[in-house]
Amino acid sequence: MIVSRFKLCSRIRFQKVSFYSSQSTDSTANLGSNEAQTSTINEHELSKFKAVSNSWWDRNGEAKALHSMNKLRIPFIRDGILSTQVTKAEKAKSNRSLAGYSILDVGCGGGLLSEALARIGANVTGIDAVAENIEIAQGHALADPLLTDLTYITSTVEEHKFNFEGNYDAVVASEVIEHVENPQFFVASCAALTKPGGSLFITTINRTQLSWITAIVGAEYILRILPKGIHDWNKFVSPDELEVMLTSSGFQPVKKHGMLYNFLANDWVWTKNTDVNFAIHAVKTLKEKEVQEAPEKLDEDLSGERQPAATSGVTSELP
């Protein structure tokens, strides 16, 4: 694997990783299969995003629902990280509450989520298999002199893990898993990149009759707020299926919310209903040795005036 690295304006870092992909077929029938999987690439899905790569930063265009989704997913990720990490109380309340935390944004697209997380202090790496998306993300980030610690890489998640295994405090895959091949392998690759005790955040679409009516027929063909054909209903993953993938990859799901989109107001709200959009936060299980060492580390952190943020516990719906 050939990796070339470019530093631009000494702020935004851009890497390009060569990757090999094979012709993919629908893997829904093999969901959760134990057969060896080696790629998450689906060439047909990649072609969809190459076609719309120039529209990422048009807030009134085809990505406007993703722009407004940041209202939910930024605090969901921020609060999830802070609730499972030992954090200085004053830092948790600051505008840069994620300073010192490393986050991987898988399938970052044009950088809508990556930039927002970097602005609240996180050291963010955004990866995407579509080179055109990375070029858009990198170009947009360079226009903001306040953005620091932001890296973009053209790569798949499975390639990235070869050089960055166990490197991140949190991994985010927002509106991505419904576009990949071998979703179980995708989750396992995310697990390999997450530090023990770290978090994985996934937002996606449930595979229900209601999601077909609203997310595909309604959003793509009637309202046309999404590109036609951008989603394949057969590739949607249910919350139960996703939780099985998470637990089999060493994660403990700790929170699950439904997400409701008001297309008239271009606004998102949390809901108890997960029939269409939903979000899951899972924590990577500590190994036995790490569990034994954790109390000593916590004592050291507390002696340094660090206070643990309150944990949210396991919930399957909104409080």
Results as ranks from 00 to 15, higher is better:
Ile2Ala: 12
Ile2Tyr: 09
Val3Gly: 12
Phe6Cys: 14
Lys7Asp: 13
Ser10His: 14
Ile12Thr: 12
Phe14Asn: 06
Gln15Asp: 14
Lys16Phe: 12
Val17Arg: 13
Ser21Lys: 07
Ser22Gln: 13
Asp26Arg: 02
Asp26Leu: 07
Ser27His: 08
Leu31Arg: 12
Asn34Trp: 04
Ala36Tyr: 11
Gln37Tyr: 03
Ser39Arg: 01
Glu43Asn: 13
Glu45Leu: 00
Glu45Pro: 00
Ser47Ala: 10
Lys48Val: 06
Lys48Asp: 01
Phe49Pro: 08
Val52Glu: 07
Asn54Lys: 15
Ser55Gly: 05
Trp57Ser: 11
Leu66Phe: 12
Leu66Trp: 07
Asn70Ser: 13
Lys71Ser: 14
Ile74Gln: 10
Glu90Ser: 15
Asn95Ile: 08
Ser97Cys: 15
Ser97Thr: 12
Gly100Ala: 06
Ile103His: 04
Leu104Lys: 01
Val106Pro: 03
Gly107Val: 10
Cys108Gln: 06
Gly110Tyr: 02
Gly111Phe: 09
Leu112Asp: 09
Ser114Lys: 02
Ala116Glu: 15
Ala116Lys: 10
Val124Ser: 06
Thr125Ser: 14
Ala129Leu: 07
Asn133Ser: 14
Ala137Asp: 02
Ala141Leu: 08
Leu142Ser: 07
Asp144Tyr: 12
Pro145Leu: 08
Leu146Phe: 13
Thr148Asp: 09
Leu150Ala: 11
Thr151Glu: 08
Tyr152Pro: 05
Thr154Lys: 13
Ser155Glu: 02
Ser155Asp: 01
Thr156Ser: 15
Val157Arg: 08
Lys161Gly: 02
Phe162Gly: 03
Asn167Gly: 01
Ala170Glu: 03
Val171Gly: 03
Ala173Met: 12
Ile177Arg: 00
Glu178Ile: 13
Gln184Asp: 10
Phe186Arg: 05
Phe186Tyr: 10
Val187Leu: 03
Ala188Val: 00
Cys190Glu: 01
Ala192Phe: 00
Thr194Leu: 04
Lys195Trp: 04
Lys195Asp: 02
Pro196Trp: 00
Asn206Cys: 06
Arg207Val: 03
Leu210Trp: 02
Thr214Ser: 10
Val217Trp: 11
Ala219Arg: 05
Tyr221Leu: 04
Ile222Cys: 09
Leu223Trp: 07
Asp232Lys: 06
Lys235Cys: 14
Lys235Glu: 11
Val237Pro: 11
Ser238Pro: 01
Pro239Gly: 11
Glu241Cys: 07
Leu246Thr: 11
Ser248Pro: 00
Gly250Trp: 00
Val254Leu: 14
Lys256Ala: 11
His257Pro: 02
Tyr261Leu: 15
Leu264Asn: 10
Val269Arg: 15
Lys272Met: 03
Asp275Tyr: 01
Asn277Asp: 09
Asn277Ser: 11
Phe278Val: 09
Ala279Gln: 07
Ala282Cys: 05
Ala282Ile: 07
Lys284Gly: 00
Lys284Pro: 06
Lys287Arg: 09
Lys287Gly: 07
Glu288Met: 10
Lys289Glu: 15
Lys289Arg: 14
Pro295Thr: 09
Glu296Cys: 07
Lys297Ser: 11
Leu298Glu: 12
Leu298Trp: 09
Glu300Tyr: 08
Gly304Trp: 05
Ser312Cys: 10
Gly313Met: 11
Gly313Pro: 04
Thr315Tyr: 01
